[in-house]
Design a protein around this nucleic acid. Structure first.
Lengths: 148, 148
DNA sequence: CTGCGACCTCCAGTGCGCTGGAGGTCAAAT
DNA sequence: ATTTGACCTCCAGCGCACTGGAGGTCGCAG
């Protein structure tokens, strides 16, 4: 949601040793803050608290990162924390696949609706831009209405 | 941003008498709360405070509603209040068309980027859904990874 | 002429998603 | 041996966009 975040695990894959990466590196991979990662853990969005090394520092292994990539995808398509927590809770128990599926399908519908609305708005914005380009090119022909 | 809001002025057009509509009707037209409308006014997002009738109740005329439709479009595509305020301030002064245009163009780029990211995420979500449908259909074949 | 509902102002509170600061541990680098 | 920097926990604070409540006015219906 900040414009710079992209989720690409395959690319980064090789750089993840089997003993895992520290939180700073994980944050860097996802383009988010370390505090956000800890926050997600506190909020129960991970399947389990991230595993720790000798001096209880977090070490994220590939499976942890994969899960986080998934939750960020939900997050960045607008799913609220609370619902992601529900997803995590379901994912801890076997036999909840149908519920998880339904949650995802609902979310999918929501995202599509949002995207369609955005597309419509974008077209209107394009019209406004075109109108302004007119005005700016040979200035002072007509007045346009509506915000913008 | 609540899923139910749609902006359609043309449709509703006929029902707006020249003396304007009260805030409740305006809120209904846009599918937002009356408080939100007052809030936008307080925050300086309108060109001017909405004109009042005899007993200083707000009466929104067509031009007021058109502006609000525009600002809601910006809002619903994620433009923050502060930037919409800037747009409103510019729109009060003539000769600021170039700045308004630039603001809109920047916003357009931002919206497009967001939409492209969403589209990518959506595709991933679709894959997840497909995987879950498999599992749910003939249950217990394989485990999928990633949140969801 | 009394009630009712929609409206008014002013100011405080809420929900969400982080984000910051204090105070401390640990492992490697000088 | 000390310093540095990334990490830790705990708890408080922040920014944004509303949202709610108190206390009051207005105009019409009964």
């Amino acid at each position: 949601m900040d414009g710079m975040t992209e989720i690409l695990l395959p690319d980064v894959d090789a750089e993840i040793p089997p003993e895992g990466v520290p939180i700073g590196r994980a944050a860097e991979i996802f383009g988010i803050g370390v505090r956000t990662l800890r926050y997600y853990e506190d909020e129960g969005l991970l399947l389990d608290p991230a595993p720790r090394d000798s001096g209880h520092r977090r070490r994220y292994r590939r499976s942890d990162l994969t899960w986080i990539a998934g939750l960020l995808m939900l997050r960045q398509t607008g799913m609220p924390i609370a619902r992601i927590r529900v997803m995590a809770e379901l994912s801890r128990r076997a036999g909840t696949e149908a519920e998880r599926l339904e949650l995802l399908e609902r979310h999918r519908e929501h995202v599509i609706e949002e995207m369609e609305r955005t597309r419509r708005h974008l077209r209107a914005i394009d019209h406004k831009i075109a109108a302004y380009r007119e005005v700016v090119a040979h200035r002072g022909d007509h007045e346009d209405d509506g915000a913008g």
